[in-house]
């Protein structure tokens, strides 16, 4: 067991590996529809803690591909569930972790991969916004997800990037933040999506970095944790949403990292592993991932560094974009 105030890395690894096997608990069942995202959270955490080898890569890749819908080109959140961009990104991110994007490229028709297999381009609307699936829900989350997925697959040029950026900018608020749609209130999660999408498309000049940076750094509460909107309680998941946004716009030094790290470490279940939203609450995979990812962004010793825009370990992203492409 880790000492007071230290990251109980081994416990968290065990928690993730065993949680994966407890598929029949009520808690797992409620999350059944988003298992692809759960896999991404758990596996990324393992990789950040240098323990990705604790799982069988081939087994994971097979399971991910069993969530795939060849007729639409998207992934469902689990076997039998409908395709949605949310889980398509998770699936692609998991394949990135294992350096197995090749399973998507099986047909070797690189140029058609999107239209024929993923069909994400089909979800871009006239105004540059993106829908999550065929039912048409529009949200800047889906803008980020589509842009991030396409970029990881080297297929960003398949969409009208200018239009996509224009739509995101139309969701910018007077406090410098971004909402889910034009007029929507600024929210740290939504801000990450918009800032991340602008980062990936090289469009950060649309952001007033001092204005947004101040709003974001004011998310730090007295207890050291970060909240997602003014006058709300701190929650470990915002360690990721707020920190990554602050890093992308080069304003992360405006918060007190030491206090935040302490807050995250206080949310650990040191006996059984896992991290919760707030101290002494029940742990889950989602907060375990965001807690470890937050520590990674603060250069916590022993944790691999993360890329703030693609939400994957830095070495994975560097490999994808810097390795000589065929």
């Amino acid at each position: 067991m880790g000492e007071e105030g230290e990251l109980a890395a081994e416990k968290h690894v065990r928690y993730i590996v065993t949680a994966e096997k407890k598929k029949d608990s009520f808690e797992s069942l409620v999350m059944e529809h988003l298992r692809a995202s759960g896999a991404y959270w758990g596996l990324t955490t393992l990789d950040l803690l240098h323990k990705l080898h604790a799982v069988d890569a081939a087994e994971v890749v097979d399971w991910i591909m069993s969530c795939y819908h060849p007729e639409s080109g998207g992934f469902g959140g689990n076997v039998g569930h409908d395709p949605h961009v949310l889980y398509t990104l998770s699936a692609v991110q998991v394949l990135c972790l294992f350096d197995r994007l090749d399973v998507l490229d099986a047909d070797k028709i690189a140029d058609c991969i999107l239209l024929q297999i993923f069909n994400i381009t089909g979800l871009q609307n006239e105004d540059g916004s993106f829908s999550g699936d065929i039912w048409g829900e529009v949200d800047t989350r889906f803008s980020y997800i589509s842009i991030c997925t396409l970029s990881l697959l080297h297929r960003l040029h398949k969409i009208n990037v200018d239009k996509a950026v224009e739509y995101i900018v139309s969701c910018k608020n007077l406090d410098g933040g971004f909402g889910a749609m034009p007029g929507g209130e600024s929210h740290a999660g939504q801000i990450f999506c918009c800032v991340g999408a602008l980062a990936i498309t090289g469009s950060l000049h649309h952001i007033d970095r001092d204005l947004l940076g101040w709003w974001l750094c004011e998310r730090q509460c007295r207890d050291g944790g970060l909240n997602g909107r003014p006058e709300k309680l701190a929650d470990v998941c915002y360690s990721w949403w707020v920190l990554s946004s602050l890093i992308i716009i080069d304003r992360v030094h405006w918060i007190d990292k030491e206090k935040l790290a302490k807050f995250i470490l206080n949310c650990q279940d040191k006996e059984n592993g896992g991290i919760s939203d707030r101290p002494d609450n029940a742990v889950d995979i989602y907060h375990t991932y965001f807690g470890v990812a937050g520590l990674s962004l603060m250069e916590y010793p022993g944790v691999k560094p993360m890329d703030p825009a693609y939400a994957l370990p830095l070495d994975v992203v560097n490999r994808i974009f810097l390795t000589k492409q065929q």
Partner: peptide, 10 residues
């Protein structure tokens, strides 16, 4: 990393 010109930001 994202305030400069790089392959990550295309």
């Amino acid at each position: 990393r994202y305030m400069c010109s790089s392959p990550f930001s295309h």
